[in-house]
Nucleic acid binder design. Structure first.
Length: 715
DNA sequence: TCAATCCGTATC
DNA sequence: ATACGGATTGAC
């Protein structure tokens, strides 16, 4: 099951305190100056320190003057080992843990209890799942305070009645009746879809996987998700949706606000800045907003009476938090759904292998469209492997497009906008080895080689600028280079010449366009930056497929398929002459797109991983650091696992492949060891990894290592 | 015998 | 991390 390794009682709250220790307590209380509160004078505080062995509550005395404000969940300042640290009050208790004197709380930072018991439990479970510290998780979960906002808000703790008006007002809104939500909705296209919505609106907790067929219009994914949210809302519960980026968030927000009262919806994303983020966070705490939508850290939003969690496009690696312990929003939401007894919807144009695993364990049920409906809803997809060099039409050669692709674009432009998906941004084309097609790497720093701008013929490194005069392929020993994927600007320019008189719009990098109009323009976008076209694209060309597939990453295939479907879902249905042309050699990935079969691809991919015993068929931990530290850590962990009869399959230690500019490189030669273990043992293994790390940190018997669980980028 | 130093350990 | 105590070592 998902949360097989959930909820170790990390914050082990002692059941009883030894009487002998208690006897000394009243004396100390009197001798230590300040008078502590009469009732529950002890506050258990989780201090904000990322030291793994300090990740537990410490007891402080509550000065009588702070008795009212020092409630569980508030942020406090305490003296800890001589320094001032900030932390959260976890609970108020009558007696301290053990026989030592209590320091008083230094200060209550704010009387707002920003850490609810539910989120504390969630953070505890996430820390256990990822062998990290609760403190690190809380740093992500609770947004930074903006003091000014607390003055204007009604006392957050008295929230009870405030939530009712919003919910009732929503139900009274016309067009928001149950019949509308479950009947004339896009969900009717999916077998079990109406049943899923009905179950939700009746207060149930169904768990579903959905691959929406459309990325635009009223049957597009934002509307499907919004209707699920509305159904949960209708049952009197709250909902939470996490999307990978702000563009998706904008689309979702429009759809959700079309169905629910505007102030019932809170938008949470770091990009909006601290003030609106904290404002919306406070609205959720107070219960005035019942639905949270946002990017990855919104998975921790304090939604009251949570009835539904939704993760959109979980295969997008933006869902992975960049701070320790690197939790994936999908996993956070799964833990949360289990803890809250909430419904769960995992939706995306494709199905990730992780979700496929959940389908196969029976944890979620697919909500799928009949083949007939699929065929009616999606564009026609064709593959062409022919080369532009053989094309007889000179314009096709100028556009550097294969003949079939060029003709599809030309015909598409008669009917509407045409999308061209290309591999990466930038005018500078990257270089690959002519014989093995591996990306050419710099001999000095392993950075990517490129032809420098300004017409210089000498390839040079894009990181360190070293000219590659005597280049040799580190992979196969080849000595000749050829151009790899061509950048958008260049593609756009060439396409413009191939389609004289047509408008060319580009979307890439930091110039991403959210949407384009229905006009007959050519839209060149890098992978993932495709604008939504009003009314859908007439055609899409998916170029550079082979170079996407060639990435030496365990997930290259899965990720490429995801990006193809995300673009293809923006194209009109075949019945409306929608056409997708893909230029890639025949593979299972291409086959999945031709048949429009994301579940089939996920099944196949997961069975391959199962055969090889690679994630997500098994779980992994990567241990990175100086060789001695890594070896010490893995040996210690193995020793601790021995008594439990667990022995881990390991790979490495191997030198870490540097994937970043030299400036971000760490001094010393780090190595990495991978540990593989089955889900059934995950709880025991993560517990041991955490304990091992705490022990090495406390004793400083070795340098610290970076510990990362289920990182998708390490293989 | 005392002080400077090292090492290990707890931090409410 | 960092401050503290107990042990260890070196010099008077």
């Amino acid at each position: 099951m998902v949360a097989d390794d959930a909820a170790q009682p990390l914050l082990d709250l002692p059941a009883a305190v030894q009487p002998s220790l208690l006897q000394g307590f009243p004396d100390r209380k009197q001798q230590s100056g300040p008078k502590f509160a009469g009732h529950l004078p002890v506050a258990r505080v989780l201090v904000e320190s990322s030291l793994p062995h300090l990740d537990r509550p410490f007891d402080y005395g509550v000065p009588a003057s702070l008795d009212n404000e020092a409630q569980p969940g508030v942020r406090v300042k305490v003296k800890f080992n001589g320094q001032d640290l900030s932390g959260f009050i976890i609970e108020r208790v009558a007696e301290p843990d053990a026989g030592h004197s209590l320091l008083p709380l230094a200060k209550v930072v704010s009387p707002v209890p920003v850490l609810t018991p539910e989120i504390r439990d969630l953070a505890t479970a996430v820390a256990a799942r990822y062998a990290g510290t609760v403190s690190d998780v809380l740093r992500v979960a609770v947004p930074p305070r903006v003091a000014r906002l607390e003055k204007t808000l009604p006392a957050a703790r008295e929230s009870g009645g405030a939530q009712e008006p919003a919910a009732e007002a929503a139900l009274r809104q016309p067009g928001n009746t149950r019949a509308d939500v479950t009947g004339h909705s896009a969900w009717a296209d999916y077998r079990n879809g109406p049943a899923f919505l009905r179950h939700l609106s009746e207060g149930g907790a169904p768990r579903a996987v959905l691959n929406p067929l459309r990325g635009f219009g009223t049957s597009g994914w934002p509307h499907l998700l919004a209707q699920a949210v509305a159904a949960a809302f209708e049952s009197g519960r709250g909902a939470l949706v996490v999307v990978p980026d702000n563009r998706d968030l904008d689309l979702l927000e429009d759809a959700v606000k079309g169905l629910l009262p505007e102030d019932a919806v809170a938008r949470l994303t770091a990009e909006d800045g601290p003030t609106p983020r904290y404002q919306n966070f406070l609205h959720l705490l107070a219960g005035t907003a019942r639905v949270a939508i946002g990017t990855r850290s919104a998975a921790y939003a304090p939604v009251k009476d949570l009835g539904l969690v939704v993760c959109w496009d979980d295969g997008d690696d933006l869902h992975i938090e960049q701070r320790a312990p690197y939790a994936h929003a999908r996993e956070v939401l799964l833990l949360r759904a289990e803890q809250a007894g909430a419904a769960c919807l995992l939706a995306g144009h494709t199905r990730s292998t992780e979700v496929q695993r959940l389908v196969e364990t029976g944890w979620v049920l697919p909500v799928e469209a009949e083949r007939g409906i699929v065929r009616r809803s999606v564009p026609r997809v064709v593959n062409t492997a022919d080369s532009f060099e053989q094309e007889r039409d000179p314009l096709a050669r100028i556009a550097r497009l294969p003949g079939a692709a060029w003709r599809a674009a030309k015909e598409g432009l008669e009917r509407g906008p045409v999308l061209v998906q290309v591999a990466r941004a930038g005018y500078v084309p990257s270089l690959v080895c002519e014989t093995c097609r591996e990306p050419a790497r710099c001999g000095a720093c392993q950075g990517p080689l490129a032809l420098a701008g300004g017409g210089s013929a000498v390839p040079q490194c894009r990181w360190c600028s070293t000219p590659a005069l005597e280049w040799g392929c580190s992979h196969c020993g080849g000595r000749r280079l050829r151009k790899g994927a061509t950048g958008v600007m260049r593609t756009a320019e060439e396409l413009g010449r191939g389609f004289p008189g047509k408008t060319v719009i580009t979307s890439s990098g930091d110039h991403v366009k959210a949407s384009v109009g229905p006009g007959k323009s050519l839209v060149v976008a890098t992978v993932g930056a495709e604008p939504v076209a009003e009314g859908g694209y007439a055609a899409a060309l998916l170029l550079d497929g082979d170079s996407l597939l060639r990435r030496e990453n365990l997930r290259a295939g899965e990720d490429t398929v995801r990006r193809w479907f995300n673009a293809a879902a923006l194209v009109r249905p075949a019945s409306d002459h929608g056409l997708v042309v893909i230029t890639a050699s025949e593979t299972s990935a291409v086959g999945a797109l031709l048949r429009w079969d994301p579940p089939g691809y996920a099944r196949r991919e997961l069975s391959l991983r199962t055969e090889l015993q690679l994630p997500p068929a098994v779980r992994i931990a990567s241990v990175t650091g100086p060789r001695a530290a890594v070896e010490h850590f893995t040996a210690a962990a193995a020793a601790h696992l021995q008594p439990a009869g667990i022995s881990l399959r390991t790979a490495g230690p191997a030198p870490v492949l540097l994937s970043g500019p030299p400036s971000s490189r760490r001094v010393g030669d780090d190595v990495r060891t991978l540990l593989f273990f089955p889900y059934a043992q995950a709880a025991a293994v993560t517990r041991v990894l955490r304990a091992t790390r705490a022990a090495t940190a406390a004793k400083r018997s070795a340098e610290p290592v970076q510990l990362r669980l289920d990182g998708v980028d390490v293989l």
